[in-house]
Design a protein around this nucleic acid. Sequence first.
RNA 1: UGGGGCGUCGUCAAGCGGUAAGACACAGGCCUUUGACGCCUGCAUUCGUAGGUUCGAAUCCUACCGCCCCAGCCA
Length: 561
Amino acid sequence: MSEIDTSNLDFIRTIVAQDLAAGKNDGRLVTRFPPEPNGYLHIGHAKSICLNFGLAQEYPQGVCHMRFDDTNPEKESVEYTEAIQADVKWLGFDWGENLFYASDYFDVLYDYAVQLVAMGKAYVCSLTAEEMRAYRGTLKEPGKNSPHRQRSVTENLALLEGMKNGEFSDGAHVLRAKIDMASPNINMRDPIIYRIRKVSHHRTGDKWCIYPMYDFTHSLSDAMEKITHSLCTLEFADHRPLYDWFLDTLQTPCHPQQIEFARLNLNFTVMSKRKLMQMVDEKLVNGWDDPRMLTISGLRRRGYTPASIRRFCAEIGVAKRESRIDMGILENAVRDDLNDIAPRRLAVLHPLKVVITNYPEEKEEELTVANHPKNPEMGTRLIPFSREIYIDHDDFLEEPPKKFFRLAPGREVRLRAAYFITCNEVVKDAEGAIIELRCSYDPASRGGSSPDGRKVKATLHWVSARHAVAAEIRLYDRLFNQANPEADPDIDFKEHLNPDSLQILADCRVEPSLLEATSSDYFQFERVGFFHLDSKESRPARPVFNRTVTLRDTWAKVAAQ
RNA sequence: UGGGGCGUCGUCAAGCGGUAAGACACAGGCCUUUGACGCCUGCAUUCGUAGGUUCGAAUCCUACCGCCCCAGCCA
């Protein structure tokens, strides 16, 4: 075998590199992403997508198939197949011509089943579900053979035909592989291959009233597509002997290698489609694409970029050990991407009016501001300035603590790209709440620096009161307030929902240029965070922005002490 | 207690018999018209535990401990 460098490759990439170097599978590399279309994709699927499609991209001959595992029509729908395809494409991956459906194989699969029966390796069992469970034995005790295990091939063939032709009702019979009821691996205790389900399928309609089970379908689908490496999560490791049994027994032209890796777990969220669906159905969130949801569509709406998700998946790696990744890693991945590509804008979330008393009443001017501090190629824009502006309430403290160096009575600060201002007076309402600041500006400091070289410790973001656009801004926090909401099986995970995961700020003021924002833009609102126009709630005259992620906030840490 | 899988920094994760990569987090410093970004420095004498093999072990052997998964006509 030729020398190959596998350092810094995860264990799956190492196996693939070695297989390829050894000339296995005629040098082909074919992976597949096999979602069941019974819900929307989430960040956990992104890990699998990035692994399967990513791996294929790493080799010139690599191919990754998109295949819907649509063998359970009761839970599946075309809505999901469409959403899933849109999500994978948005993530930046392309399956080309290789779009498949397990349901496309139903005819072949049936032939394979007949073949098993003919070989005496499968039989029709007429036990009820409860009886079958009893016959299956337990984890520690072997199962018992079904009384129908010795049916003749002829009888089995006739019965299977009858099942296919709709002669029996749901649950009357089942087709089982004849393996070993005493196997220590429960999956090998004569697993079911076909069940009767008189429901129509989203793709095959009413053609079938029997549907194949996962293990049978998946292994054979992989073989038919000549998949070389069939990657799945750890819980399927116990199924590998069965996967291999189908392929060996039926002597398929190729035998893909199943390799298991650990699924993704993230702190402060849940990662199962069933639970996500429950939150959607119970209206605990506003749909699958609620920006708080860790679905691909939710992340997209929240303002995550495809690159940030790919980057996240690359960072967390692939291994067999179960892990629980901190949300901070995901957040850091978007920050890193957005920091480079997001143009800067000024927006005030909690407006506090500031009157610049020595600035002429009717005067207006336009100030030039860079769109990105480190990337001149992103250009500049003009922002209007006038006598009355808004700054953020958080940027003023009447009695500032030691380390607070923003605005305070008598103190001078810089307005970003504008002027130095000094606070002279604090105006309060009857309740004593601060409602306005009266400041004076230094005309010589236009652009944000003073000719005399005097320094200020803070630079504030601001917006001209007269020109600002009213906007709604939505702040999101973790959906759950428990690191692992599923930790205690006796407590419903929904009990751990964070009641403050959504905060709507209805009265924000943003710079005028933001009126042109679209949901394909990503912005940094300076000193606040990264924001993205909400694709569903925005109206032309009233933009709604989602906070994708905050900026790192050293002051918040200091202030907390 | 049947079978399968896993235990390396707070969280991920390399390492594959030659003397513990990297990322995030954290701490300190520099820079700064974003308390952001960037840059610099520090951060596992130790790899679940205990024995053993070896000149040498996270890596090999043995025993033990702990965690996860499996008894759907779901995937």
